[in-house]
Design a protein around this nucleic acid. Structure first.
Length: 308
DNA sequence: AAGACGAAAGTGGTTGA
DNA sequence: TCAACAACTTTCGTCTT
């Protein structure tokens, strides 16, 4: 009897997405392609599907991405597949296999290059392994769906990385990705949106708090300044100052205010630079924060203290 | 003199008809 | 598909420290 998978083996999520055309089940939460075992139902598209499933077949628990990559090349057209298939469609199967093989080798070649690029960019940005694998997964899905056609490989790699960062709450700004990959910002944004939409990956809007820690250390601010910045951020969210605004701008402004309060003043320009926004944006957010959150007293307090 | 502030015009992306 | 729109940027002049 068919074993319907209901949970993602990697993250345990039950939020699975079944893409019928591709015959693959994708976990919406972690992006894992869950192995598909529904092989014995329907002859017609099953043939196609089983073939594809064979490509994706892996043993045991989720592997690392590089293994998956290697598996892709070697598992096509295994004899076992023929037996799974009725003799009826054997000719069709051979045709499909040939076709599939061509694509697969093309995919494999592409992946080899792309993963190298991905690793390069990832290590440049010092991204954690989990993000690297996630983005590799996303990239592979994109290649298999033919989403790379008409786009440069590098831009899709950058898009996949950006998406993976977002999913793992280690956001990098588009600017950083752009610098690391040498792809234009808007191009990355475009492919990022395109790829995530086509793959049905849902991404939460990034949380400004995730940026604070990084900006903080870039500005060499004390830990208490950082935690205060996060508090301010939370208040701002409650006051609905954050919706629709760019998360980096809000993070930057919170940090700026917090630095003022704790007497660790940084210029708007300094903060703006590490956050990748302009001073003007910081000013605007800053103004809103002061209006809503009643922080002026505290700032004045520290000013007085300095005089003393 | 450097930083902060704000106005005005321009850009790229989203939305809704 | 196009126009209106909001957020953000760039640029530049003025004010404050």
């Amino acid at each position: 009897m068919t074993n319907l998978i209901k949970k993602c083996p990697e993250c345990g999520s039950i939020n699975l997405f079944w893409n019928k055309e591709k015959g693959e089940i994708v976990c919406r939460d972690c992006g894992l392609v869950v192995e598909d075992k529904m092989v014995d139902f329907d002859q017609e598209w099953r043939a196609f599907d089983s073939n594809q499933a064979a490509q994706r077949r892996r043993t045991g628990a989720p592997m690392t991405y590089t293994q998956y990559d290697q598996g892709l090349g070697t598992e096509i057209g295994r004899k076992a597949d023929i037996y799974q298939l009725g003799s009826k469609d054997r000719n069709k199967f051979f045709r499909l296999r040939k076709w599939q093989y061509r694509i697969s080798t093309a995919i494999e070649r592409n992946l080899k290059l792309a993963l190298a690029e991905l690793k390069r960019v990832s290590s440049y940005l010092k991204l954690p392994k989990s993000v690297e694998e996630e983005s590799a997964r996303i990239y592979t899905l994109a290649v298999q769906k033919g989403l790379v056609r008409g786009r440069s490989m590098e831009s899709v790699v950058a898009g996949a990385l950006y998406a993976a960062c977002r999913r793992h709450d280690v956001p990098r700004t588009l600017d950083e990705l752009s610098e690391a990959s040498g792809i234009e910002k808007k191009e990355i944004g475009r492919t990022y949106r395109f790829v995530t939409r086509e793959l049905g990956i849902t991404i939460l809007p990034s949380n400004p708090a995730d940026y604070i820690a990084r900006f903080c250390s870039a500005l060499k601010l004390a830990a208490k300044t950082q935690s205060r910045a996060i508090e301010i951020l939370e208040q701002a969210q409650k006051a609905e100052l954050t919706s629709g605004r760019g998360p980096t701008g809000i993070a930057a402004a919170s940090l700026y205010v917090s630095a003022l309060i704790h007497g660790e003043k940084r210029t708007q320009r300094e903060v703006a630079d590490v956050a990748g926004v302009t001073e003007v944006t910081i000013r605007n957010r800053y103004k809103e924060l002061l209006e809503e959150l009643d922080l002026e007293k505290e700032i004045k307090k520290t000013k007085k203290k300095k005089k003393d």
